[in-house]
Simulated assay, not measured.
Amino acid sequence: MRFKIILASVKPVLTDKIVDSAKDSGATGATIIPARGTGMREAKTFFGLSLEAQTDIIMFLLEEHLVEPVLAAIARVGEFSKPGTGIAFVLPVEQVVGLESQMEQFKKAAGNE
């Protein structure tokens, strides 16, 4: 069984919608990490203090066959085609531990009973 990870940087107001759409597309869960960041535009300042945009990093560990539909759902709901709305990318996963209790469920979902 091969896994990949999707990391998505999104506006916090969209996090729940994006996670729900990913689950509807086959993701079994997500890890959400509050973050802040900068983009191509300079951070706004208020009395000399920088106001950096809050963001959430959503992490999805997925079986390889689920990556395309989940990534498409994330991009659609997050409106990533519009500038400054978010970004998502996929990384390969070499090894996974801690999913032993879910392996049977993964095999059944993939039709490999």
Rank of each mutant, 00 (worst) to 15 (best):
M1W: 11
R2E: 15
R2I: 07
R2V: 11
R2A: 15
K4I: 06
I6M: 10
I6P: 09
L7I: 08
A8P: 01
A8M: 02
A8V: 09
A8Y: 08
V10T: 05
V10D: 04
K11W: 00
D16M: 06
D16K: 14
D16V: 06
K17M: 13
I18H: 04
V19T: 03
S21R: 13
A22L: 04
A22E: 09
D24M: 04
D24R: 11
S25W: 03
G26K: 02
G26V: 06
A27H: 09
G29T: 06
G29A: 08
G29H: 06
A30M: 10
T31I: 05
I32P: 05
P34T: 03
A35H: 09
R36S: 14
R36P: 01
T38A: 04
T38G: 03
G39F: 03
M40P: 05
E42R: 13
E42S: 14
A43G: 02
A43T: 07
A43S: 14
T45W: 00
F46K: 14
F47H: 08
F47E: 09
G48Q: 08
G48M: 00
L49A: 12
S50M: 13
S50I: 06
A53V: 13
A53T: 15
T55C: 02
D56W: 09
D56L: 03
I57G: 00
I57Q: 03
I58L: 07
F60P: 04
L61F: 10
E63G: 14
E63K: 15
E64I: 02
E64M: 09
H65S: 13
E68A: 14
E68N: 14
E68C: 07
P69M: 10
A72R: 12
I74K: 03
R76Y: 01
V77R: 07
E79H: 09
F80A: 00
S81E: 15
S81R: 14
S81D: 15
K82N: 07
K82E: 11
G84H: 06
I87P: 03
I87D: 00
I87A: 12
A88M: 07
V90W: 03
V90A: 07
V90E: 10
P92K: 03
V93C: 07
E94A: 13
E94I: 14
Q95G: 09
Q95W: 08
Q95L: 05
V96E: 01
V97W: 15
G98I: 01
E100Q: 05
S101I: 01
Q102V: 13
Q102E: 13
Q105A: 12
Q105D: 04
F106W: 03
F106T: 04
F106Q: 07
K108S: 10
A109H: 07
A109S: 11
A109K: 12
E113W: 11
